[in-house]
Design a protein around this nucleic acid. Structure first.
Lengths: 165, 165
DNA sequence: GTTACTGCAAACACTTTGCACAGCT
DNA sequence: AGCTGTGCAAAGTGTTTGCAGTAAC
């Protein structure tokens, strides 16, 4: 299954005359392994460094850009902070429905297409040809709600900045 | 009406021991005048400079931050590029439904709450306490669709970078 | 008279780029 | 052999901060 993905990705790269270098393979490995997390470029850099210590941050950014144009990963920008990257297992159109806790920073995802009706309504009323959409829901997760009840000045459930795993 | 807004804003500032300086007034003026556009910090800076040439960019950023915490303006981050700011006339909870053309960069808005049902469904299934949400729809506006049909390599309807009004 | 605010410039964080060398194919 | 990819360091961009002077309250 992973090897099927791998050969498909090699093809995708080859189609555009991109090479499948060990650096790109190492980065891909990190992204696939952490496919349920949203990683920053720096996190990907540091994790890739474990397997490939010589790698440079510039290579990571260049690779992520290529992977994004090929649809291998998705890039998100929820706030003014750094972008987050995530593996896109199916290479298909991806609905970005994210539920973000304002206290602990955790991000959960909904992949169902909840917005078909809304898209249709907007397309009809504006003539817009819709390609994609992005929905972010902000609030408080159950854990943080509980903690907030207990100690109104307490600490978040998880540190908002998940710098290290 | 504007004066009513103004006194209300003065109150909001005073409540938090913020002062109503001429710089803040000038910035507010720009934001209210352009309340149907999404302005970058730099655009606000340059427009404010017309009325108040001595102003510095740092003051603009500091003022925008204060205005945002008071709910006077809203700040958006659609991409990795700079943030956009917009006046929030009602100071109420604001639904950010933006329709963004991928070709000319124009941004239109829907202020109806299209997502109540979806919010309810997510709250029920996850226990999340939802505070706000942000929806961005990406596609092509009618003008750009027409232009794309005519000349498949033509120019966008409007420059994507609206540096000057 | 306090205290918050300002403008400047320097610092900042994240990301991109120029360059000479290395390595696929 | 040729062209793409790499690592480094330097540059770039948008935003924030330290500081000494200034102005609102």
């Amino acid at each position: 299954m992973v090897s099927k993905k791998l050969s498909h990705i090699k093809e995708l790269l080859a189609e555009k005359d991109y090479r499948f270098t060990p650096q790109r393979e190492a980065i891909l490995h990190v992204i696939v392994e952490c496919q349920h997390s949203h990683l920053t470029a720096d996190e990907i850099y540091r994790k890739t460094k474990e397997a490939y210590p010589e790698i440079g941050i510039a290579t990571v950014y260049r690779t992520l850009e290529i992977f994004e144009t090929l649809g291998i990963i998705h890039k998100f920008q929820f706030s003014e902070e750094r972008a987050l990257y995530e593996f896109n297992p199916g290479y298909h159109k991806h609905y970005h429905h994210h539920v973000i806790c304002l206290r602990c920073g955790s991000i959960s995802e909904f992949n169902e297409d909840l917005l078909e009706d809304i898209e249709d309504a907007i397309a009809r009323s504006t003539g817009f040809s819709i390609v994609d959409h992005s929905l972010a829901i902000y609030g408080y997760c159950t854990t943080c709600q509980e903690q907030q009840e207990q100690t109104d000045s307490g600490n978040p459930a998880k540190p908002a900045d998940l710098d290290e795993e």
